[in-house]
Amino acid sequence: MSDSDSEHEQQLTLEDLEGSDTEMLSGDEDGPVDIFTKQKVTVNNEPALRRLCEQIALPTDIPWSETQSITSSVPVHVVDPDDDLNREVAFYNQALEAAVQGRDRIKKEGGVFERPGDYFAEMIKTDDHMAKIRQKLLDENASIQASERAKAQRELKKFGKKVQTEKRLEREKAKADALDKIQTLKKKRQGGDSTGNADDEFDVALASDDDEMKAYKTAGKGGKNQNGKRPAGSSSTTESRGKRMKKDQKFGFGGKKRFGKSNDANSSADVSGFNVKRNKSTSFKAGHKASKGAAKGGAKQRPGKGRRQNGAGRK
């Protein structure tokens, strides 16, 4: 070993002794006491480390592709090692730099870098494992979406309730307004029925009289229609018959009136209204049972809350 090396060692040992690694405990004021002094001197024999490194190092003139090792241009510096995101980004950047440089160097040395699409070989993770990973990703996505949808629904519900209350208030207000108007009208009528109102009515009567007369005259010229009920001028249109048609549709018009609602062969063969799911549902069955039980008189029914709780406490 050279002089400088031994000097270095000397320095090191001195440093070690001075540093906090040497734990010295002093005695009390009364006097020195026997204390077990734990001395921990760490070793950092740099010359030895250098020698070891040289001893095992690969020759420097070998092609790069023998080792394929790349040292980053910038040291990784992470302020807080517990900060996962920043730490991983630093590692990622370091590896990415190596990947980019490595590709260039491999191509320069005439090697192959990327795998062609039709080269299939055993992978480090099996297909089963990759399927599991994919499924997990899908599940995660689905759960995220579901939670988002639920959130939106909740928002909508909140908003919907607002709209509902607004509408209710509006309706109430409208009703109150209408009632108010009616009240004022009534008051007005009671106040001035002797003069203005009588005139109004008279006017209306006159006008309607005129109209009726005209209609009557025209009807008289054309004669009576087939029914003999109505004048032709006032023959009904589809619009005017709307209400009647609805009623006919609902209650039937003409034809046989009896057994209209009773089953016949076709209707009893029709099972489109039957729902298997509903038929098998517990609530439906329970209802069925209950009704059966009621017919028999004395099936087990769920007692009320208070009785249930008391009963449970007793037993």
């Binding site: 394929q68 040292t71 980053s72 370091q94 490595g102 070989a121 993770k125």
Partner: peptide, 20 residues
């Protein structure tokens, strides 16, 4: 995922060159 047994690039932090 990668090929089983493909050679990799080794990437080292520059800090590795700081001390022996």
């Amino acid at each position: 995922n990668c090929l089983k047994g493909s050679r990799h690039i080794l990437s080292f932090d520059k800090n590795f060159e700081s001390t022996p």
